[in-house]
Design a protein around this nucleic acid. Structure first.
Lengths: 168, 168
DNA sequence: CTATATTGTCTTCCATGGAAGCTAATGTGC
DNA sequence: GCACATTAGCTTCCATGGAAGACAATATAG
């Protein structure tokens, strides 16, 4: 009996008229996401990076040569506000991992670029990160992992493309 | 092709030697947790509650009559530090949803208790919350939901009770 | 019984991110 | 071409939580 099951049992005692079975899935999904997140952050911290900083370096690295992106693009890719992105870039710039310069065309725009140490760092950190994710995923059998991926994709896509076009 | 698949494709182009299949599961799990969390917070906010405050009220409510718990217990149940719990209780007390008094036995201890409005609020909010979770879960077929729950339990328990006692 | 350790809560300081507004640069309608 | 809207990035202020230590009460060793 895990933590979520204990919570469900308490609710069933206190509010027997309420159906708490959805918690079995949603509660465990959140708990698992938290636990996985903890494990992933261990690797980020090995490189002196927070999760947010790691995400930004990855987004720039994935862009390919010459490893540059606008702050606004980075904000969209990493799903934070532009204000939060400004601060992340500030920290990365202070750490010497990226540089910031004006865009040549549009003078409002900036261009954030990986430095040589920044590129080396994220290349090593990402390889380590993927080994870590592989280790965590290998706690499941390949069959289970594949089934889980399919279920997550199904649920995600049904949330993104609602079949019921009433509320939106 | 979803967001995660796009990210994987970019990594395969940039770092073809790295196996990024684990992201298919772990990335989507985190994204789904975030999306579900957004939906859940919509209900909390209907009652003027943050997620943390909702969690605290639930933990006290689940304790059963007389709906009281020590701050330290609440911190353990909701998985935050006692410092964070102090602040959550401050806010709930200011909102008139809980009261704080000294424990009669151990004078170090405090007892946090639901007020009548606090009890009414969390009882209604929790019922609404469960309807919301049900709505989200019903985006999956019952078979898929059940399969997902099993997979999440399996993975979670393998993380909590590591079969491999060699520590890296 | 007293000195020390432990415990429970709170306080302080810091890190991070969101919301909203600011500024400079660019786009648009007339 | 000029007034106005929009855009990109940044700044300010606030909300939240962690880490570490303060403080008071309790437990424990001798």
């Amino acid at each position: 009996m895990d933590h979520v099951a204990r919570i469900q049992a308490e609710w069933r005692r206190e509010r027997p008229e309420i159906d708490v079975t959805p918690q079995g899935v949603i509660g465990r999904l959140h708990r698992l996401a938290d636990r996985l997140g903890e494990e992933l952050r261990l690797v980020y911290s090995r490189y002196g990076l927070s999760e947010g900083e790691f995400d930004v370096l990855c987004a720039i690295r994935r862009a390919g040569e010459p490893y540059e992106r606008a702050p606004g693009e980075l904000a969209v890719h990493t799903m934070v506000t532009t204000g939060a992105m400004t601060k992340r870039i500030d920290r990365l710039e202070r750490a010497g991992l990226v540089t910031r310069r004006r865009s040549t065309g549009d003078q409002r725009g900036r261009i954030v670029a990986l430095t040589t140490p920044g590129l080396a760092l994220i290349d090593q950190a990402f390889a380590d990160h993927m080994r870590n994710e592989r280790r965590l995923l290998d706690l499941l059998t390949p069959t289970d992992a594949s089934a889980l991926e399919t279920l997550l994709m199904t649920w995600l896509s049904s949330m993104e493309h609602p079949h019921t076009p009433d509320s939106d």
